[in-house]
Computed example of a mutant assay.
Amino acid sequence: MNYKEADIETLAPSNTREDSVPAVEIIDLKKSFGNNHVLKGFNLSIKQGENVAVLGKSGSGKSVLIKCIVGLIKPDSGQIKVFGRDVVNLDRQELDEVRSKIGFLFQSNALYDSLTVRENLEFPMRRLRIKKTKAEVDQMVHEALTSVGLPDVQELMPASLSGGMKKRVGVARTLILQPDIILYDEPTSGLDPITSREIANLMNDVHRKYKTSSIIISHDMSCIKRTAHRIVVLNDGIDYQQGSYEELKNSTDEIVNSFFL
Rank of each mutant, 00 (worst) to 15 (best):
180 D>C: 05
53 A>H: 10
259 F>K: 11
190 G>A: 08
103 G>H: 06
37 H>V: 10
61 G>M: 14
259 F>Y: 15
182 I>Y: 00
22 P>L: 07
193 P>V: 02
140 M>Q: 15
132 K>N: 13
187 P>A: 05
86 D>W: 01
103 G>A: 04
255 I>R: 04
26 I>N: 01
1 M>C: 09
83 F>M: 09
37 H>I: 03
188 T>G: 06
240 Y>P: 07
245 Y>C: 00
118 R>G: 09
183 L>I: 11
131 K>N: 12
215 I>E: 07
159 A>R: 12
51 N>A: 08
190 G>V: 08
170 G>E: 05
236 D>F: 05
202 L>Y: 03
46 I>N: 03
169 V>E: 00
70 V>S: 04
125 M>D: 09
172 A>R: 02
36 N>A: 15
185 D>Q: 06
131 K>T: 15
198 E>R: 06
162 S>V: 08
258 S>T: 04
105 L>S: 03
241 Q>G: 01
189 S>E: 13
183 L>R: 00
52 V>H: 02
190 G>F: 06
226 R>G: 00
52 V>E: 01
114 S>F: 09
251 S>W: 13
10 T>L: 11
85 R>Y: 02
249 K>M: 12
219 H>E: 10
98 V>R: 05
261 L>I: 15
199 I>D: 10
200 A>N: 11
111 L>F: 08
11 L>Q: 12
89 N>K: 11
230 R>L: 06
30 K>A: 09
123 F>G: 11
190 G>P: 07
145 L>T: 08
244 S>A: 11
132 K>R: 14
217 I>R: 01
209 K>Q: 10
36 N>C: 12
113 D>L: 08
78 G>C: 01
225 K>L: 00
48 Q>W: 05
81 K>Y: 03
91 D>I: 02
155 E>D: 15
159 A>N: 11
15 N>L: 15
163 G>S: 10
201 N>E: 10
80 I>S: 01
47 K>W: 02
66 I>K: 03
55 L>M: 13
50 E>S: 02
29 L>M: 08
223 C>E: 04
224 I>D: 03
232 V>R: 02
17 R>N: 15
54 V>A: 02
99 R>S: 15
46 I>A: 06
29 L>Y: 07
244 S>I: 04
37 H>W: 05
198 E>Q: 14
125 M>V: 10
18 E>W: 11
34 G>W: 13
52 V>I: 15
66 I>P: 05
197 R>M: 13
157 M>A: 09
81 K>S: 01
27 I>F: 04
74 K>G: 14
189 S>Y: 08
151 P>L: 02
182 I>L: 05
101 K>Y: 02
176 I>E: 09
226 R>F: 04
91 D>V: 04
191 L>P: 07
62 K>I: 06
94 E>N: 06
139 Q>G: 06
127 R>M: 14
192 D>C: 07
203 M>T: 02
248 L>E: 06
221 M>E: 01
77 S>H: 03
78 G>Q: 00
72 L>Q: 15
230 R>T: 09
214 S>Y: 02
159 A>P: 05
203 M>P: 02
146 T>P: 10
38 V>I: 15
87 V>Y: 04
106 F>S: 07
11 L>D: 05
14 S>N: 12
182 I>T: 00
212 T>E: 03
196 S>Q: 12
134 K>I: 14
62 K>T: 06
